[in-house]
Design a protein around this nucleic acid. Sequence first.
RNA 1: GGCGACAUCGCCAAGUGGUAAGGCAAGGGUCUGCAAAAUCCUCAUCCCCGGUUCAAAUCCGGGUGUCGCCUCCA
Length: 462
Amino acid sequence: MKINNTMSGKKEEFIPIVPGKIKMYVCGPTVYNYFHIGNARPFLFFDVVRHYFQYLGYQVTYVQNITDIEDKIIAQSIREEIPFQAVSEKYINAYYEDLAKLGIAQADIQPKATSVVPQMVTLIEKLIQNGHAYEMNGDVYFSVESFPGYGKLSGKKIDEQRAGSRVEENKEKKHPGDFTLWKKSKPGEPVWQSPWGEGRPGWHTECVVLSRENLGDTFDIHGGGIDLVFPHHENEIAQAESLNGKPLANYWMHNGFLNIEGEKMSKSENNFFTAREVLEEYSAEAIRFFFLSKHYRSPIDFNRAILEESDRAVKNFYNTFRDINFENFKTESLTTGEELTWAEAEFREAMDDDFNTAKALALLFELNKKAHSNELSFDQKKASTLLLYKLGSVLGFFQDMNAFDTKPIDSDLDAFVQAQIQIRNKAKAEKDWATADQIRKNLIEKGIELMDTKEGTEWKQK
RNA sequence: GGCGACAUCGCCAAGUGGUAAGGCAAGGGUCUGCAAAAUCCUCAUCCCCGGUUCAAAUCCGGGUGUCGCCUCCA
């Protein structure tokens, strides 16, 4: 198993700290709004990472924080004129809802930042004692010059940056790169008590506390979006290593950004979509396919055409399940036999190579082809289908086998359509093609499509 | 100014030295009253120029282009 480690910039052989067990931490949402489709990428990808490790037999502990105190949440609470807790609560619930709709399992531990404020205060106190942090008028800053390793993750050297060019110069700071650990509160803001007066913790400290509390001083994998490399993860490392000199995590994984129509997604461009908006138009499986069809570290472009392509691609699998009547043997145990072990081996080979999901998907399509081939026996096709289902499930597909089903939901509508089908079948029997086609046409105008199969006429709503 | 990524068929995309996976779209055949689905077949020499090598999309150098980070950001 090889993983591209941002720390070294290379693919490294993955060796867990404790054999058979994996501890991973991924930066979670700041709950001031519904999360957008770009946020969904790490959520979805690291969920696949977790499931793949579990498939390999590892026991995984997955921690993801929830940032429930932060400038944007406060701004939102002022805007909506409600307490900040009400804002965070609302969007935490929305977060869980959207994850579920996307077919993403929750992390094993999902602590809130506000649950560990005293621990953050303690950590900051230690950093002050160690000479790594200093207090100025109620604010506390981390001194980047006190930590020689600062910049080792991102490859940045603090003195080569354009100090103060894009950031407002803060005269309180000893060095322009010093970052806030504790922020003095302004009137009307939520406050916590501290040795430096009333205030609130900075963002970079919560992940240090939450990861170490739940996973120990050093854990296996720390993940997040590539934009977090600097400064967030760099700052986490600075704090953690300044405490005890131990690495915070052994492997740092970062996913590439999602662009919209080639442009960076941003509010000022007004070109971002929330995950729930996208889910109104496209299936969770199509979204999953879209993300997994490209390597996680590459930037990915989001647009309608691609989502529609993804949707059509995923439908192939469901057509296979439908045509072979997968429901009838879904629960049978998989006995791939020798002829299919290569497929699973190649699947693993792809995934073992820094999670090459695009290549893994190609294997799924090869199995799909076999599952549908007219040149193979039913048993051979059945074995391919079972393996397709198994490996697809590792990638998070096929959670809802009815996702592309034709089963009607509305019984009144079904009764109506069934009646139409009856009339049409009668016309067909009498070779009255004009009437039969007219009925098909009428129904299509209502968004209903008829399909004649050997078992009779089925219908689905578009 | 510093750091980094990327450029492969109409579109998406894998491929880090041995002669271009896969998906979507398209074209043709089969099946079907029609349609849908399915099935079979067809469909690229890898941005440009040099170099290394028996051999390069893959390595090196130089261009060109696109993008990201350096500020809250997945």
